[in-house]
Protein backbone atom coordinates (compact mmCIF):
# COMPACT_ATOMS: atom_id res chain seq x y z
CA UNK A 1 0.00 0.00 0.00
CA UNK A 2 1.43 3.36 -0.79
CA UNK A 3 2.13 5.73 2.04
CA UNK A 4 -0.39 8.45 1.23
CA UNK A 5 -3.31 6.06 0.99
CA UNK A 6 -2.17 4.40 4.19
CA UNK A 7 -2.10 7.80 5.87
CA UNK A 8 -5.58 8.75 4.69
CA UNK A 9 -6.96 5.32 5.48
CA UNK A 10 -5.63 5.47 9.02
CA UNK A 11 -7.37 8.80 9.59
CA UNK A 12 -10.72 8.11 7.96
CA UNK A 13 -11.64 4.69 6.66
CA UNK A 14 -10.01 2.64 9.38
CA UNK A 15 -10.39 5.20 12.10
CA UNK A 16 -8.95 3.95 15.33
CA UNK A 17 -11.99 4.79 17.47
CA UNK A 18 -14.94 4.26 15.19
CA UNK A 19 -13.89 1.19 13.26
CA UNK A 20 -11.32 -0.49 15.50
CA UNK A 21 -12.96 0.36 18.84
CA UNK A 22 -9.69 1.38 20.42
CA UNK A 23 -9.31 4.14 22.96
CA UNK A 24 -12.97 4.22 23.87
CA UNK A 25 -12.46 5.00 27.55
CA UNK A 26 -10.96 8.45 26.91
CA UNK A 27 -13.31 8.86 23.95
CA UNK A 28 -16.33 8.58 26.23
CA UNK A 29 -14.64 9.86 29.37
CA UNK A 30 -12.57 12.87 28.35
CA UNK A 31 -14.66 14.31 25.59
CA UNK A 32 -17.11 16.49 27.47
CA UNK A 33 -15.61 19.59 25.88
CA UNK A 34 -13.41 20.45 22.95
CA UNK A 35 -10.41 21.66 24.95
CA UNK A 36 -9.91 18.49 26.96
CA UNK A 37 -10.54 16.45 23.83
CA UNK A 38 -7.74 18.27 22.02
CA UNK A 39 -5.30 17.70 24.90
CA UNK A 40 -6.09 14.02 24.98
CA UNK A 41 -5.71 13.75 21.21
CA UNK A 42 -2.34 15.49 21.17
CA UNK A 43 -1.00 13.37 24.02
CA UNK A 44 -2.08 10.18 22.30
CA UNK A 45 -0.51 11.22 18.99
CA UNK A 46 2.86 12.06 20.56
CA UNK A 47 3.04 8.84 22.58
CA UNK A 48 1.90 6.75 19.60
CA UNK A 49 4.63 8.01 17.31
CA UNK A 50 7.43 7.55 19.83
CA UNK A 51 6.31 4.13 21.04
CA UNK A 52 5.76 2.85 17.52
CA UNK A 53 9.39 3.53 16.66
CA UNK A 54 10.76 1.97 19.84
CA UNK A 55 8.53 -1.10 19.77
CA UNK A 56 9.26 -1.67 16.09
CA UNK A 57 13.01 -1.74 16.72
CA UNK A 58 12.70 -3.85 19.85
CA UNK A 59 10.33 -6.32 18.23
CA UNK A 60 12.35 -6.97 15.09
CA UNK A 61 15.85 -6.64 16.49
CA UNK A 62 15.40 -8.23 19.90
CA UNK A 63 12.32 -10.42 20.19
CA UNK A 64 12.42 -11.95 16.72
CA UNK A 65 16.13 -12.66 16.96
CA UNK A 66 15.72 -14.25 20.38
CA UNK A 67 12.68 -16.16 19.15
CA UNK A 68 10.69 -14.80 22.07
CA UNK A 69 7.75 -13.18 20.31
CA UNK A 70 5.35 -14.46 22.97
CA UNK A 71 6.75 -11.74 25.25
CA UNK A 72 5.28 -9.09 22.99
CA UNK A 73 2.48 -7.98 25.36
CA UNK A 74 4.79 -7.62 28.27
CA UNK A 75 7.43 -5.75 26.32
CA UNK A 76 4.99 -3.32 24.72
CA UNK A 77 3.28 -2.36 27.94
CA UNK A 78 6.63 -1.74 29.60
CA UNK A 79 7.75 0.43 26.67
CA UNK A 80 4.53 2.45 26.84
CA UNK A 81 4.83 2.96 30.60
CA UNK A 82 8.47 3.95 30.19
CA UNK A 83 7.85 6.42 27.36
CA UNK A 84 4.96 8.07 29.16
CA UNK A 85 7.02 8.44 32.31
CA UNK A 86 9.99 9.85 30.37
CA UNK A 87 7.82 12.32 28.45
CA UNK A 88 6.28 13.51 31.67
CA UNK A 89 9.72 14.10 33.17
CA UNK A 90 11.03 15.84 30.05
CA UNK A 91 8.01 18.11 29.80
CA UNK A 92 8.23 18.90 33.48
CA UNK A 93 11.87 19.88 33.21
CA UNK A 94 12.05 21.68 29.86
CA UNK A 95 8.56 22.52 28.68
CA UNK A 96 6.71 23.39 31.83
CA UNK A 97 3.83 25.06 30.00
CA UNK A 98 3.22 21.99 27.84
CA UNK A 99 3.32 19.91 31.01
CA UNK A 100 0.63 22.06 32.59
CA UNK A 101 -1.48 22.01 29.46
CA UNK A 102 -1.46 18.24 29.14
CA UNK A 103 -1.62 17.73 32.93
CA UNK A 104 -3.39 14.49 33.82
CA UNK A 105 -3.99 13.34 30.26
CA UNK A 106 -0.45 12.17 29.71
CA UNK A 107 -0.21 9.63 32.58
CA UNK A 108 -3.65 8.29 31.70
CA UNK A 109 -2.28 7.14 28.38
CA UNK A 110 -0.33 4.23 29.86
CA UNK A 111 -3.51 2.25 30.14
CA UNK A 112 -5.08 3.56 26.94
CA UNK A 113 -5.84 0.62 24.73
CA UNK A 114 -5.49 2.71 21.57
CA UNK A 115 -1.71 2.77 22.02
CA UNK A 116 -1.29 -0.91 22.82
CA UNK A 117 -3.78 -1.93 20.15
CA UNK A 118 -2.15 0.12 17.43
CA UNK A 119 1.32 -1.09 18.24
CA UNK A 120 0.05 -4.65 17.91
CA UNK A 121 -1.69 -3.78 14.64
CA UNK A 122 1.58 -2.35 13.31
CA UNK A 123 3.32 -5.63 14.07
CA UNK A 124 0.49 -7.90 12.92
CA UNK A 125 0.15 -6.16 9.55
CA UNK A 126 3.88 -6.50 8.88
CA UNK A 127 4.40 -2.79 8.34
CA UNK A 128 7.94 -1.59 7.84
CA UNK A 129 9.30 1.19 10.01
CA UNK A 130 8.10 4.05 7.76
CA UNK A 131 4.65 2.53 7.34
CA UNK A 132 4.40 1.95 11.07
CA UNK A 133 5.22 5.59 11.77
CA UNK A 134 2.77 6.85 9.15
CA UNK A 135 0.05 4.57 10.44
CA UNK A 136 0.64 5.71 14.03
CA UNK A 137 0.68 9.37 13.06
CA UNK A 138 -2.48 9.02 10.97
CA UNK A 139 -4.26 7.08 13.67
CA UNK A 140 -3.29 9.69 16.24
CA UNK A 141 -4.72 12.40 13.98
CA UNK A 142 -7.83 10.32 13.37
CA UNK A 143 -8.28 9.88 17.11
CA UNK A 144 -7.87 13.63 17.68
CA UNK A 145 -10.28 14.48 14.88
CA UNK A 146 -13.01 12.16 16.09
CA UNK A 147 -12.65 13.04 19.75
CA UNK A 148 -12.86 16.79 18.98
CA UNK A 149 -15.93 16.38 16.77
CA UNK A 150 -17.50 14.19 19.41
CA UNK A 151 -16.62 16.69 22.17
CA UNK A 152 -18.31 19.48 20.22
CA UNK A 153 -21.44 17.41 19.73
CA UNK A 154 -21.55 16.62 23.43
CA UNK A 155 -21.19 20.30 24.32
CA UNK A 156 -24.31 20.98 22.28
CA UNK A 157 -26.08 17.98 23.75
CA UNK A 158 -25.83 19.33 27.28
CA UNK A 159 -28.68 21.72 26.58
CA UNK A 160 -30.91 19.24 24.85
CA UNK A 161 -33.76 17.33 26.34
CA UNK A 162 -32.73 13.69 26.59
CA UNK A 163 -34.90 10.92 28.11
CA UNK A 164 -33.66 10.16 31.60
CA UNK A 165 -32.48 6.63 31.00
CA UNK A 166 -30.45 7.74 28.02
CA UNK A 167 -28.58 10.52 29.82
CA UNK A 168 -24.80 10.26 29.91
CA UNK A 169 -23.21 7.27 28.28
CA UNK A 170 -26.12 5.68 26.39
CA UNK A 171 -26.76 8.79 24.31
CA UNK A 172 -23.02 9.26 23.84
CA UNK A 173 -22.72 5.73 22.49
CA UNK A 174 -25.64 6.19 20.14
CA UNK A 175 -24.09 9.44 18.89
CA UNK A 176 -20.85 7.58 18.33
CA UNK A 177 -22.81 4.94 16.44
CA UNK A 178 -24.19 7.54 14.06
CA UNK A 179 -20.70 8.97 13.60
CA UNK A 180 -19.45 5.47 12.86
CA UNK A 181 -22.12 5.13 10.18
CA UNK A 182 -20.79 8.31 8.56
CA UNK A 183 -17.19 7.16 8.74
CA UNK A 184 -18.26 3.78 7.43
CA UNK A 185 -19.50 5.49 4.30
CA UNK A 186 -15.92 6.49 3.43
CA UNK A 187 -15.22 2.81 2.96
CA UNK A 188 -17.84 2.08 0.33
CA UNK A 189 -16.81 2.82 -3.23
Amino acid sequence: MNLISLFIASILTSNVVLTKFLGLCPFIGASNNKKDALKMGVSVTIVLIITSIITYLLYYYVLVLLDATYLVNLLFILVIAFVVQMLEMIFKKYFLNVYHVLDIYLPLITTNCAIMGLLLININSDYNLIEAIINSFGSGLGFTLVIIVFGSIREKMENSNIPNNFKGTPIALITAGIMALLFGSYMGG
Binding site: L18, P170, A180, L181
Partner: peptide, 17 residues
Protein backbone atom coordinates in the same frame (compact mmCIF):
# COMPACT_ATOMS: atom_id res chain seq x y z
CA UNK B 1 -20.77 -3.18 11.65
CA UNK B 2 -19.12 -0.83 14.15
CA UNK B 3 -22.03 1.60 14.15
CA UNK B 4 -24.43 -1.15 15.19
CA UNK B 5 -22.14 -2.06 18.07
CA UNK B 6 -22.23 1.46 19.48
CA UNK B 7 -25.97 1.81 19.10
CA UNK B 8 -26.86 -1.59 20.56
CA UNK B 9 -24.58 -1.03 23.56
CA UNK B 10 -26.17 2.38 24.12
CA UNK B 11 -29.65 0.88 24.01
CA UNK B 12 -28.72 -1.99 26.34
CA UNK B 13 -27.24 0.42 28.89
CA UNK B 14 -30.36 2.57 28.70
CA UNK B 15 -32.53 -0.50 29.22
CA UNK B 16 -30.40 -1.61 32.17
CA UNK B 17 -30.73 1.88 33.65
Amino acid sequence: EPSGAFIILGLVIALFN
